[in-house]
Write a protein that binds this DNA or RNA. Sequence first.
DNA 1: CGGCCGATTATCT
DNA 2: GATAATCGGCCGG
Length: 193
Amino acid sequence: MNPILPIEFFSRPAPQVAPELLGCLLVRQWQGQRLAGMIVEAEAYQGMEDQACHARVGKTARNTVMFGAPGRAYVYFTYGMHWMLNLVCESEGIPAAVLIRAIKPVEGLDAMRALRPHLADTNAWLNGPAKLTQALGITREQNGTDVCSTDGGLWVEKGASAPLEQVRLTPRIGLGATPEPWLSLPWRWEWKF
DNA sequence: CGGCCGATTATCT
DNA sequence: GATAATCGGCCGG
């Protein structure tokens, strides 16, 4: 087992943390099995000033975890059916998080297929934020989980770092009517190889 | 690959 | 009452 990313890793601005998460291993302990995938796409959401961030309107019941300690999972429900996994960054009081958008399955493929039948047909890529939460069995129950410990069954292990020339920076996805400049900030990192 | 569309409901105004 | 950090199916190129 590789070293678990410590709280210090997350105690920084999200745009700094997000690219460094590429290549790291997202690990889930699920019904006695170890499920894991390499993070290959992530987006940063940083501060109340970021008009794409859920925290732009201040603290609410849903986004409270983002205002809290770093190294926690911020899991929220959207579109009436999907769960999204974020990792909280920055020190307490500053809302910031990295949305995990895609992973390459590495361990526990059979269990992932059981959780997400669609994975059986396609090539084994979980290229979407709601796809990977489904394959890892992540829901509301993981909201607030400390990912710097194995106690909550969800953590991140240090992995290979992505070669700079293989990392693409693009604007974030699905922001709708978000105003500029936030709409176009290159805060999405994708490891293409 | 890109675009459009319907599904489905917690959360916020 | 409106919106949403999406997905899968179906279309056209």
